[in-house]
Design a protein around this nucleic acid. Structure first.
Lengths: 226, 226
DNA sequence: ACGTCAAAAAAGATGCATCAAGTATCTTAT
DNA sequence: ATAAGATACTTGATGCATCTTTTTTGACGT
C-alpha cells in the first residue's frame, strides 16, 4: 500500500517556508531576532495566513521559538544543545559517509570536487555567504549520494537551528572548514567507509571548533558523548 | 540573550497536534487514511484554523502527505524508507543508550524496570494499545535519562512515521519486543555504555523484524547500512 | 534621570467567507 | 441502457475581521 511520491504543491506557505529556511541557513538572522507575521506578510506580498503556516512549520522544526504568546524569535542555542547537535551529526553524517563511500559513482565524486573548487574560490574572495552555502552543500552531498532522504531531512532541521549561530564564527575558523573536506573525498574515491566516516567526524569536531568557542566558553571537550 | 525555555503555550493547534500525534503513535490511523480538515474541526469542536495548523505541522514531520492538492492522507512507508529509519534509530538510540549508561541513577533504573513490569502485564492481558505505548515509553526513556532533548525530538518524529505501520505487526512478534529490553536495563545497571548500545541495537533490529516482514517482503538484511 | 503605571498600539489566535480546483452526481441525447 | 457533458458538491488555500493579551509608549511622580 501507499508509497506516495511527495510532489511539492507549491503553496504560498511552502514558498515562504523555503525562503525563511534559506535565510536561516545563510545566517541572515541573528539569534533573538524577532519575527512579525504582519511585517513578513507585507514583505512577501501575501496575507498573514501563508506566513503563519510557514512560521508554524519553523517552530515545529525548533528553528524559531515563541518566547511568549505574542513574541516570535529566532531560537537561541545553548552550549549543551550545540554539543548534542554535534554528537548527533557525528553519528548521522558518519552513517551517511559510510554508505556514500560504498555507492559513490565517479560522477558523485566529481560533483564533490567541484564544490571544493568553488569553495576554495569563495574563501579566496572572502565571500562569506558563498562559503557557508558551499560548506552546507558539501555536507548535504553525502546523504544524497548515500540515498538517505530521511537523514537529509533530519540534518536540514539541525542546520536550521545552527544557521543563525555559525555565520560569525565561520570566517574566524579560516580554512579550518574546508581543510577537513579533502580526506572525505579521498575516502570516497577509495570506497573506504571507515575512513570516510572518520574524516567527516574530524570535520564536524575540528572544523566546528570555532562555532563552539563562540557559543560556549570554548572549554575542552570533557563531554563523554562524542 | 538566547536560551529560550520552550514553554508550550497551549494553543488549540498544539492540543490538536498532540492528539493527532498520540493517535499516530498508537497506531489508530492506517496508512492511506484520509484526513479532512472540516471533519476534524467538527470532531475537535474548533474552527478549521487550528486543525490546519496541526495538519501542517504533521506534514512538516512527514507523518502525513498531500497526495494531491486537496487530498491529505497518512503517509506510506516503503521498505527502503523503513530500513533507513531503522539505521538512523540504531545510531541515535545507540548514542542515547551509551550516554544513559554513563549517567543513569538508581531512580532512572527503577523507572525503567517499572515500565518492563507493566509491559509484561500488558502482554499477559493481550492489551495491544498499552503494549505499544509501554514499548515506546521504554525507548524514549533512554534519551530522557541521557539528557538529550534534540535526539528525543528526532526519535519522536521517526515514530510518528512508523506508528501507522507497526500496530498490526506488534503482536505478531509476540514477546520479541520486550525480551530485548532486559539486557538494556542490565547494561545500565553496570554502567556499561557499549553493552547498553549493543542491547538496544539488538532490540531495534531483532525486535523490529516483524515490522519489516510486514512492510517489505521480509528479505534478508542485505543492506550495508545497519 | 529613573522607575512606575496606565492608556494606546501591536500582535498572534481564532473563526469565517470566499476561491479555485477537483470529484461526484445528474441529465440528456443517442 | 449507456456515455458524454453539465451541474452541484467537496475541499484545501487564501484573505480578512475580530478578539484577547501583550508590548510599547509616554506621562507622571519621585
Amino acid at each position: 500500500m501507499a508509497e506516495f511520491t511527495t510532489l511539492e504543491h507549491e503553496n504560498l506557505n511552502s514558498v515562504v517556508y523555503g525562503a525563511l529556511c534559506d535565510a536561516l541557513m545563510q545566517g541572515r538572522f541573528q539569534p533573538g531576532d524577532r519575527l512579525k507575521i504582519r511585517d513578513l506578510a507585507e514583505q512577501f506580498g501575501t496575507s498573514v495566513t501563508p506566513i503563519r503556516d510557514a512560521i508554524l512549520r519553523l517552530a515545529n522544526d525548533e528553528a524559531i521559538a515563541f518566547r511568549s504568546p505574542r513574541d516570535i524569535r529566532i531560537a537561541g542555542l545553548s552550549e549543551n544543545r550545540y554539543r548534542e547537535i554535534r554528537a548527533i551529526r557525528v553519528r548521522l553524517e558518519g552513517l551517511a559517509a559510510e554508505t556514500a563511500a560504498q555507492v559513490a559513482t565517479s560522477a558523485d565524486i566529481q560533483a564533490m570536487e567541484q564544490i571544493l573548487l568553488e569553495n576554495e574560490a569563495a574563501i579566496k574572495d572572502g565571500d562569506r555567504l558563498k562559503g557557508t552555502q558551499l560548506n552546507q552543500a558539501f555536507h548535504f552531498m553525502l546523504p544524497r549520494i548515500a540515498g538517505l532522504p530521511v537523514l537529509t531531512t533530519i540534518l536540514r532541521r539541525l542546520w536550521l537551528q545552527m544557521g543563525p549561530h555559525i555565520s560569525d564564527a565561520y570566517l574566524a575558523g579560516g580554512r579550518a572548514m574546508i581543510d577537513h573536506h579533502y580526506p572525505v573525498v579521498e575516502a570516497l574515491k577509495r570506497h573506504d567507509p571507515t575512513a570516510a566516516s572518520m574524516a567527516i567526524v574530524d570535520d564536524i569536531l575540528l572544523g566546528g571548533k570555532p562555532i563552539l568557542d563562540r557559543i560556549g566558553g570554548g572549554s575542552p571537550d570533557a563531554q563523554p558523548s562524542v
